[in-house]
Design a protein around this nucleic acid. Structure first.
Lengths: 224, 224
DNA sequence: CAATGAAGAGACCGGCGGTCCGCTAGTGTG
DNA sequence: CACACTAGCGGACCGCCGGTCTCTTCATTG
């Protein structure tokens, strides 16, 4: 074990926190979130497990922090990359499809964000104190609201309520389709002998774009 | 430990299998799938853990078996309950909304099926042999196809391909929305003090009906 | 310079999914 | 009826998990 110089000041404590988060981010690049254990995380960060838990209240808390960071970075990137107002006077359905493809591409370019999103409800939010859960919930709420505004900029015919529904649905679809798009190696191998199973595990980006597009078209057509 | 009369014949072995499955079904009534441990399952079934694993290759295999059974029973029930052809000459969108409400109600009446569906991709399909995974995948494929036919009966304007997309999406939405609709007690408690978080965890049946309806409307409107 | 109190490490805990092994009940045979 | 064989079975055991507890160490402060 590395035996650290001890963190006495707040900045030094922040260094510890960041080291844990960076180690977690590295591990996410090479394994699914379920495979990230506290033991291995501490080992790679060069700290004792109990020392990691001095800075994070649980394993899930670390991952939730990673998710919040990745989501914030993703939104900043969206803001830079796709500021375009809907310039062309195309019908709303066509623009909706364009938005869906762009969004799906953006999510597809951030696999670790997708991985964390797919685990957030079933895994990450358990085993966490009320405080941490609520802090994260509020961040998620703000993120979904921000994304709703983003959608409204590209599809001005969406009123506030529909934009919020669309935004929530996008996050839901990202998580659900990401999981389905990553079967175990065993199943992948089986695709060779039984192609009728392939549709259960479609390509993530394509399936996401298609699903978002269909949902947006439904929203635009809905009389409610 | 109960110390069984030993199972020598195939029927006796089947009795063991059924006892494990029944015990699992009972546990599902009172706890989420993640909380069902092999230790407790074996204890309740009155068998040694190693004896349970003589009949099922892993914990996940038991749960997958439960899922297949629950899904089959659900389909049989749907078949009985909703044979109605689309008699009224209402517009397709209106009928689609009716189908969505009916389907959502049917799923809402089977919480353990929903619970298993929500866990199937992320949890149940791991830690299972190729054989078991494929056997279950084929059953899932057939179930989705059957449900596609069911949807086509109620909404004849859906061609085969769209009916299949709709059917897959329904299963996806059931799983994803079920998870979101069951936050931890901590978060539930927080709704009292911050109602702006409520939309993150909507009522299952309502949210499901709304999502299915919107998706169906989008499918019907899609020119592709 | 000693007292203090926080940072850190590592032993420890209960529980998990799963395996191994020895016992013995039940069967088929002489 | 006796005996050997084998398969059902229970329980000890394994390595791992997330998390806690206790003891050491050392920078700061009076």
């Amino acid at each position: 074990m590395a035996t650290f110089q001890r963190a006495r000041s707040e900045e030094q404590r922040e260094v510890r926190r960041r080291r844990v988060l960076e180690t977690g981010a590295e591990m996410l690049e090479e394994m699914p979130v379920a495979a990230i254990s506290l033991n291995e995380l501490a080992r790679r960060a060069g700290m004792a497990k109990s020392n990691v838990l001095r800075y994070f209240e649980s394993r899930e808390s670390v991952l939730l922090d990673l998710l919040a960071g990745a989501a914030a970075r993703f939104r900043a990137e969206l803001d830079d990359g796709l500021p375009g107002a809907p310039d062309a006077p195309e019908p709303a359905e066509v623009r909706a499809r364009g938005v869906a493809v762009a969004l799906a591409g953006a999510f597809g370019a951030h696999p670790t964000l997708c991985e964390l999103l797919s685990a957030q409800w079933a895994v990450l939010e358990h085993n966490v104190s009320v405080d941490v859960a609520l802090r994260y919930k509020r961040a998620a709420r703000d993120g979904i609201r921000w994304q709703a505004g983003f959608l409204q900029r590209l599809l001005p015919e969406l009123d506030d309520q529909r934009a919020l529904r669309a935004s929530s649905m996008v996050i839901l679809l990202v998580g659900a389709l990401w999981t389905r798009s990553h079967p175990s190696p065993a199943v992948l191998e089986a695709f060779a002998t039984d192609t009728s199973l392939e549709f259960l595990h479609p390509s993530f980006t394509d399936a996401l774009a298609e699903a978002i597009a269909t949902f947006l078209v439904g929203l635009l057509a809905d009389p409610a």
